[in-house]
Design a protein around this nucleic acid. Structure first.
Length: 713
DNA sequence: AACTCCCGCCAGTCT
DNA sequence: AGACTGGCGGGAGTT
């Protein structure tokens, strides 16, 4: 542990060990026809490896540390295996790439494979939704069915031998085939599915690279030139790496007449309960590019998406299922590139990264209490444990922290691209209903969706992308937006979530109708106001008085701001942290003097011990919102950034996990907080997450992100 | 030498 | 025109 903490490289290495370590103690070895040999050599070598030269390792990243498998492992660790059914997690490839410190190209490889298994689903350009393993079984079952249907099991047998004569193979009878007819671009995804099919129909569940390559080559009607073969094999390695990370396969060797052949053995299940869920909700077509039609699970997804919208930016349009391979819904370069966002998170928080999951009471009890729980990564956890971990799995993760008892809450709007958006929320007026978000049922209508999409884009643009806007312009926009929102929601009832339509509200967890603390307005401070990297929400909670600056002598800042009805922000995920109001000793004290008007104005912020300038400093604690280890986590997850320091109100339970270096070994207990360090790629340590929308660079292997880089333009 | 697979060029698609 | 995707294969690191 210590060692790991000491060196990220070592952590990676350790991770790697875990990743590729053959599952030991697994059941006895099945008597397979071919003699399958585990790759123990690798394992052994790893054993010793960690012990020695660490320095050496630090020098250069080492190829292994940059492996797709390891990268995938990191990627997976960012999200839960079994995310709450109703809260889709939005993934921005750009952000992920940035936070993992790799090129986007690499992420595509991973995502394509994951998509083939429905672990993620593409929403639009650059954005995916994380499904985790929820649909994995169903997907596998379907793949198995298709595999048999296509006679892969026969091919497998033949493949081993000389060649050919694939039984009527092919044709892809379906989607898996040539996806989309000739969309060659889908091949990795398709190839992945086929590869998996081979395992699922194989008696031994072991597939040699050679066989797989041959079979796949045949399918792709190409003459199988040797180069073709080699290329195929390369791709298979890519896929295998991802599958290995998923724990679905492991590398083995099959002995044959002459020597041994590299092969992979399936570790996942092969027999499926056939439970309704499987086939009913999943359709391979769904993952294939050409699936243009609605699939059974569509509704489900849609629902998720809708909910998901509240987490991030992807909001409304999210509900729209990805139409076809290329149905980019909303390119939000601004979003993804969010120059700022990511930056904020990580960069500022070198020290403390507390990422918590915010939840509201139990589904059973409607207490409006707010609970922040460190969310753990359970990528590799078995369902059971995972579930247990999240006792509240049934409860949608809330990011909204409006608990009645927490007058002073810090919130964060992670999805806003605008890097430094400071929001002050509080019952300025009476708790007014928080709009169920834009997302009312009707919003799902075709028309509504369309409209929403438009709106969304517009809104996002307004709020999020305004790089070129002046603060005032932004304000105006926001105001207009707010107004409109207000009108729209007039009939809706409050919810605790900005956008969601979720259980939480149904359960009354945040039934604001009776709850007082629902933020009625937010204070929006344009980034250009000078609060770069502040990203936080100030809880105004109380009466103005309480907002008064406690300490004198603290530098204050005058910032332009605009009050925005909470509804106007409904599409943005809010991450909040409970900050205790009576900031006891709190180091974070902010005072505002705000005119309760909806017009551009200025308010002053005074930070007690910390200066705003500290934002970039590692310990800038002043920002109540410690940056999440990674943007994805907070954003996609809807996790809340815990307000660090303060104690909790009676009803709040906040457990903050500070970023303790954890060894990658135990992904299950991987505290989100630890991710930052962990996820940093050696090469980008320290700067990885800068959200700077680093222009995507083609040629560079690793992005170098400038921490201090001004996020914009 | 064979096996792996990182890397990033570059073309097809979208916006 | 520019951004997004991802096919592809050279060639370097490992075994």
């Amino acid at each position: 542990m210590l060692i790991s903490a000491a060196s990220p490289d070592i952590r990676d290495r350790e991770m790697r060990k875990v990743l590729f370590r053959p599952i030991e103690n697994e059941k006895e070895k099945p008597a397979s026809p071919d003699t399958v040999t585990e790759d123990t050599e690798v394992e052994d070598s790893c054993q010793f490896e960690a012990v020695d030269e660490e320095d050496e390792a630090e020098k250069k990243p080492s190829r292994k540390q940059k492996s797709l498998g390891l990268l995938c492992q990191k990627f997976l660790a960012l999200y839960p295996d079994y995310p709450p059914p109703n809260s889709p997690i939005w993934i921005s490839l750009d952000e992920v790439a940035t936070s993992l410190g790799v090129e986007r190209r690499r992420i595509y490889d991973i995502v394509n494979v994951l998509e083939s298994l429905t672990i993620v689903g593409r929403i639009a350009k650059n954005s995916y939704t994380w499904y985790g393993r929820q649909q994995l079984e169903a997907t596998l079952e379907e793949l198995q069915r298709r595999g048999r249907q296509q006679g892969y099991h026969l091919q497998m047998e033949l493949a081993a031998e000389p060649r050919e004569a694939g039984p009527g193979r092919e044709d892809d009878g379906g989607d898996v085939g040539n996806a989309g007819g000739n969309r060659k671009d889908k091949s990795l995804r398709i190839m992945s599915q086929k590869f998996v099919m081979l395992f699922l129909v194989s008696k031994t569940q072991t597939v040699t690279l050679d066989a797989a390559a041959k079979i796949l080559i045949e399918e792709s009607q190409d003459s199988s030139s040797h180069s073709k073969y080699k290329t195929k094999v390369r791709r298979l390695y890519d896929i295998a790496n991802v599958l290995t990370s998923l724990g679905l396969i492991k590398k083995v060797h099959v002995r044959e007449e002459r020597g041994r052949k590299p092969a992979f053995k399936w570790l996942g299940q092969v027999e499926f309960s056939n439970s309704g869920s499987a086939g009913s909700t999943f359709n391979v077509a769904a993952v294939t590019p050409d699936a243009t039609q609605p699939i059974a699970g569509q509704d489900l997804r849609r629902a998720k998406m809708a909910r998901h919208a509240s987490f991030n930016i992807t909001p409304r349009s999210v509900t729209v299922q990805r139409l076809v391979n290329s149905a980019p819904s909303s390119p939000r370069p601004e979003l993804t590139g969010l120059p700022n966002q990511p930056v904020d998170y990580s960069r500022k928080t070198a020290g403390l990264n507390a990422v918590c999951r915010l939840q509201f009471g139990n589904s059973s009890d409607n207490r409006p209490s707010l609970a922040l729980q460190p969310h753990t990564h359970s990528s590799h956890q078995p369902p059971s444990s995972t579930q247990s971990n999240r006792l509240t799995s049934s409860i949608p993760p809330e990011y909204h922290f409006t608990s009645t008892s927490s007058p002073h809450c810090l919130a964060y709007l992670p999805s806003l691209s605008q890097p430094s958006v400071v929001m002050l929320y509080g019952p300025l007026d009476k708790p007014h209903q928080m709009p169920e978000g834009q997302r009312s049922p009707r919003s799902e209508s075709e028309e509504g969706r369309k409209r929403r999409r438009k709106e969304q884009e517009g809104e996002e643009d307004a709020v999020v992308k305004k790089k070129g806007m002046s603060g005032l312009e932004e304000c105006d926009k926001l105001r207009g937006e707010a107004r409109r929102e207000a009108e729209e929601r007039s009939t809706r009832t409050s919810t605790c979530r900005p956008t969601g339509q979720g259980r939480a509200s149904d359960e009354g967890l945040c039934d604001s109708s009776s709850e007082p603390a629902q933020p009625s307005h937010y204070l929006y401070v344009p980034n250009n106001a000078g609060l770069n990297s502040l990203n936080f929400f100030l809880s105004a909670g109380q009466n103005p008085a309480s907002l008064a600056l406690p300490s004198g002598g603290v530098p204050t800042l005058a910032l332009p701001y605009v009050l925005v009805p909470s509804s106007a922000l409904s599409h943005y995920p809010l991450v909040a942290g409970g900050l205790q109001q009576q900031g006891s000793d709190s180091h974070h004290k902010l005072s505002f003097s705000l005119p309760a008007v909806m017009s551009p104005a200025h308010f002053t912020v005074g930070a007690a011990p910390y200066s705003l300038a500290a934002a970039a400093a590692p310990d800038i604690s002043w920002s109540p919102v410690p940056s999440p280890s990674t943007p994805e986590q907070s954003k996609l997850y809807g996790s809340a950034l815990c307000a660090p320091p303060s104690p909790q109100g009676p009803r709040q339970t906040v457990s903050i996990s500070t970023s303790e270096p954890l060894t990658p070994h135990t992904p299950k207990e991987f505290p989100a907080s630890a991710t930052k360090a962990f996820f940093q790629t050696p090469g980008t340590l320290g700067s990885v997450v800068s959200a700077v929308p680093v222009a995507r660079r083609r040629g560079s292997a690793q992005r170098r992100l400038d921490i201090g880089h001004p996020a914009t333009t």
